[in-house]
Design a protein around this nucleic acid. Structure first.
Length: 931
DNA sequence: GCAAGGTC
């Protein structure tokens, strides 16, 4: 069998179709991985890298004393499978193979991916022949010639890729751990560092600094308004910017009629049709449609998987010769673009446009199939249309403009006006994404005199550089060689998810700045794009076999050790700097009580706003738990309280804006305050004035203090505190009820828990106890169905019983055994005989007696007599001696309190029969035997 | 828990 391994499933399929020619390809799935077979050949696709490098075992603990962040520099690495199903399948097929061909993409990563496959094959079949097919496009001609000229894997090329992997892991992981530990950040808040992300972040930080340090300069622009044949014309002074106001004023004053046309130049300008899309130019164009880089890529990948467009990850801006442009045009005929396609076919430019970058891996992004608006979502359609129109534009003629430049003289002051008129729109007919603004000037003749309608000296300010938009940043990353077509947008996503940057255009957060500063000061290598450039040069030397992989990695290790020399010497300083710089990120504003900063605090899953004056000032505001989203400060502030608004952010959900935390705090607690019988509007106002907002604050105050701060009488103060304690208890029970309902009743559309609780409260059900006693009909009023109502009631009763028993003193461990034995209510304890309880639960009868005694006392009922273990065992033997009386009958007799010969002899057969279900005649027989 | 690079 000849096994062919491609880089991805879709390539595997296409390669199989091409090589099979007229033969039919059998597609089958093995563990969700597709294979394509024909003749004696089987083609299978990888998923890019199916293994990943990581440190050898022993380095998982970040805080290890021995395996410090620095020790990662010299740590050994291992390759571990990340796509187990594919790895297994490849190895299964390899065992049967007598020839294996690696057919991954023709670039460094592709060669490395190929080598990874090579190693997987070798591990299970050391003797099989393995060769390599190299092609730069998956077209019949390329693929056939590649398989006619098979070569060997280029291990030097793969080694270049491995070097990158090792260097990235070593630098990234060791620095990430070092910086995170220094700044005491763990879990979701780690501070990541990497060869690509750190320089990218540094650029955003740098740009923000430029904006902050920018000093605007004032300048003046001078223009005049004239007209001809009723057409207004604006002409600018040829000086452009006047930086000196006096000079501007002088020129303005000197601008007088007559205004004479001194020169008219007409010309033509061609406006080139755009080049084919590569990933970067595509992202830039999509961003004009309002799509973020990540979004645009996600949609493009979707379109690609559904066969509408070609592979979206490409660096190529030149159509390969093998691409059938006419065929694509034909495919697009008949649909929404029919007219546009027809026009392009009629007016085809002789050669399609081409961009500066040409690579061999994939063609530029182009449509591959016809789609309808209905088949795609709104955004998908927007992207598809963009790609179709771009493709059509690259085949369309250039646009041509007629340009006019006029010069005027206003009594010595020179002015100019330029105009443009679209002569032939060319590609602009079908690619409406960039606006072509015409500015048509009237026809002027040299020497002509014109009126001056107005002279205008306008004051302006120079502007700071703009923040990077996502698409602009991707362009700059590309220029600097940072990241790849597939990863650039992900790197930006990473910076956002690490909360280093936010917004679009991108702004750095305080954490982002603090980390960049720390790295800039102590490990500048990692914040500079230079590192990538050097790495690439070294990779080039490895490819050319002029340096070895180990040699380059050793050099990199030494460099990183020097970086750590500096870092470790300043560890404490780096840590405090980051912590101090980022504290502000959590600061909401001044405490209304003491004026110190209020800060958002996270403690496990709970979060709240606390005062930095703690413990002297105990002011705090509670926030919803972090399961609702992590609380962050946002730009907006509350004018009344001078506090920043708070937002809860959770992955996958829309952010929840809480607004001013104090306003929300006040509003959400007024209702609770009003639950106190003596609370009045006036009192609420007075309490608020003294920053007392919650019932629990009143409950926690000494009546004496309350008297002084709010100015109420002693009796009133005591009443208030007592009422607050009561209200607090009611609230506590209510919240318990709420949690309980939420747990038992599954959430469903159109049935909100808030509504259910509201209806319960209206029916007087304020806690679980009340719920356990409620009528099913009451529950149905709250919109619950029969089954759910029954379940909720049962659960509430169960919980109440359990609580009553625990309250009576039954230990939790025993309680579980009782429940398992079907003994659930306090009544069960009082009325079921002890032998029965003991036998059902396996608990010692003396212990059972102790528990029963506790429960009975708690309920004010008499405690039944004690039964010892010995008595019970003896009694059991006595009973079993009676002919026809077995184990099962003993258990049933326990139910009636009969556990030995004596108790049986005394029993009333009729009564015992009704309790145990044993026929009366049999009972008579037993008793008869005993007598 | 860490990078960057493939691919989905």
């Amino acid at each position: 069998m000849h096994l062919i391994i491609a880089e991805k499933n879709i390539s595997a399929n296409r390669i199989a179709q091409i090589l099979a020619g007229n033969e039919k390809v059998r597609a089958s799935k093995d563990g969700n991985v597709s294979t394509y077979s024909f003749d004696t050949k089987t083609v299978v696709g990888l998923k890019g890298h199916v293994v990943e490098v990581d440190f050898e075992p022993g380095y998982t603990n970040w805080r290890s004393e021995i395996h410090t962040p620095r020790s990662l520099i010299d740590a050994g690495t291992v390759k571990k499978p990340t796509e187990k199903k594919i790895v297994n399948l490849i190895q299964k097929l390899s065992k049967k193979a007598d020839l294996v061909t690696i057919a991954t993409d023709y670039d460094t990563e592709g060669e490395l991916i190929g080598k990874e496959a090579y190693e997987l094959v070798r591990a299970v079949n050391p003797g099989v022949r393995i060769n390599r097919a190299r092609f730069s496009a998956i077209t019949p001609a390329e693929i056939r010639s590649a398989f006619e000229n098979l070569t060997d894997l280029d291990f030097a090329l793969a080694a270049a890729g491995e070097t990158r992997q090792t260097v990235d892991l070593m630098w990234g992981a060791s620095l990430t751990r070092f910086i995170s530990l220094a700044a005491r950040r763990g879990g979701k808040n780690i501070l990541s560092v990497g060869r690509v992300q750190s320089p990218t972040l540094a650029m955003i930080v740098e740009r923000e600094r430029e904006i902050e340090n920018f000093v605007p300069q004032t300048y003046w622009m001078l223009s005049l308004a004239t007209e001809k044949d009723g057409m207004p014309v604006e002409a600018r002074h040829t000086r452009g910017r006047f930086t000196d106001h006096e000079e501007g004023l002088a020129a303005e004053a000197a601008t007088r009629e007559p205004l004479i046309v001194t020169d008219v130049k007409e010309g033509q300008k061609t406006d080139r049709a755009p080049a084919p899309f590569d990933t970067t130019t595509f992202i830039v164009a999509a961003s004009r449609l309002g799509l973020s880089a990540a979004n645009a890529m996600r949609i493009a990948e979707d379109l690609y998987m559904n066969g509408y467009i070609s592979y979206p990850r490409t660096d190529n801006t030149v159509y390969p010769k093998s691409l059938n442009l006419n065929g694509i045009l034909d495919t697009l005929r008949g649909g929404v673009f029919d007219k546009d396609v027809a026009w392009v076919q009629q007016h085809r430019r002789p050669v399609p446009t081409r961009g500066k970058k040409e690579s061999t891996d994939h063609p530029p992004i182009h449509p591959t199939g016809a789609a309808t608006r209905e088949a795609l979502g709104q955004d998908q359609w927007k992207v598809y249309e963009l790609i179709v129109r771009r493709f059509l534009a690259t085949l369309s003629p250039d646009a041509t403009w007629m340009t006019t430049k006029c010069l005027f003289d206003a009594s010595g002051e020179p002015y100019t006006a330029t105009g443009g008129r679209l002569l032939s729109p060319g590609w602009r007919r079908i690619y409406p994404y960039s606006e072509a603004k015409e500015n048509i000037l009237p026809v002027f003749a040299v020497g002509e005199r014109l009126p001056i309608k107005k002279v205008n000296l306008e004051e302006k300010q120079t502007q700071p550089p703009a923040r990077y938009s996502q698409s602009r940043l991707i362009q700059v990353m590309e220029e600097l060689g940072l990241g790849t077509k597939s990863t650039r947008h992900e790197v930006i996503g990473k910076l956002v998810s690490r909360r280093y940057v936010e917004g679009n255009p991108l702004r750095p957060t305080l954490v982002g700045r603090a980390v960049t500063d720390a790295l800039d000061n102590h490990a500048e290598t990692i914040t500079e794009p230079e590192m990538t450039r050097t790495l690439e040069e070294h990779m080039q030397l490895i490819k050319q076999r002029q340096r070895s992989r180990d040699d380059v990695i050793t050099e990199s290790r030494e460099m990183l050790h020097r970086v750590f020399d500096k870092l470790e010497a300043h560890e404490a300083e780096i840590g405090t700097e980051i912590m101090e710089q980022t504290a502000e990120e959590h600061t909401v504003g001044p405490c209304p009580v003491c004026g110190h900063d209020l800060r958002i605090r996270h403690l496990g899953i709970s979060q709240f706003i606390g005062c930095t004056g703690y413990p002297e000032c105990r002011f705090n505001i509670s926030l919803p738990g972090s399961t609702w989203g992590r609380a962050i400060r946002i730009e907006q502030t509350c004018e009344k309280h001078n506090l920043a608004h708070v937002r809860l952010i959770r992955k996958g959900s829309r952010p929840w804006d809480i607004g001013c935390p104090l306003c929300t705090h006040i509003a959400s607690n007024v209702e609770a305050l009003r639950m106190m019988p003596s609370m009045t509007d006036d009192l609420v106002q007075r309490l608020h004035k003294h920053h007392i907002y919650t019932v629990s604050e009143i409950a926690g105050t000494q009546p004496h203090d309350l008297m002084e701060t709010v100015g109420v009488g002693a009796g009133e103060a005591e009443t208030l505190v007592r009422e607050a304690e009561d209200a607090l208890e009611i609230l506590r029970r209510r919240s318990e009820l709420r949690k309980f309902v939420r747990k038992v009743v599954p959430p469903r559309k159109g049935r909100s828990h808030a509504k259910i609780i509201k209806s319960f409260l209206e029916e007087g059900i304020g806690d679980i106890q009340a719920l356990s006693r409620a009528e099913p009909a009451t529950l149905k009023k709250a919109g619950l169905g029969d089954a759910v109502a029954t379940e909720l009631l049962a659960a509430a009763r169960g919980l109440c019983n359990e609580r009553a028993l625990r309250e009576a003193g039954v230990p939790a461990v025993s309680l579980k055994k009782y429940q398992a034995g079907g003994v659930a209510t306090p009544d069960d304890f009082c009325y079921l005989p002890i032998p029965y309880l003991a036998s059902k639960t396996g608990i010692n009868p003396e212990t059972v007696h102790k528990h029963v005694d506790m429960v009975c006392r708690h309920l004010g009922r008499p405690t039944p007599a004690k039964v010892t273990k010995a008595a019970l065992e003896r009694g059991r033997k006595e009973l079993l001696e009676i002919p026809g009386l077995g184990e099962a009958t003993v258990e049933r007799l326990y139910l009636a309190g009969i556990y030995d010969a004596a108790t049986l002899r005394e029993a009333d057969p009729e009564k015992v029969s009704s309790i145990t279900g044993i026929p009366e005649t049999r009972l008579h027989d037993y008793i008869g035997y005993l007598k």
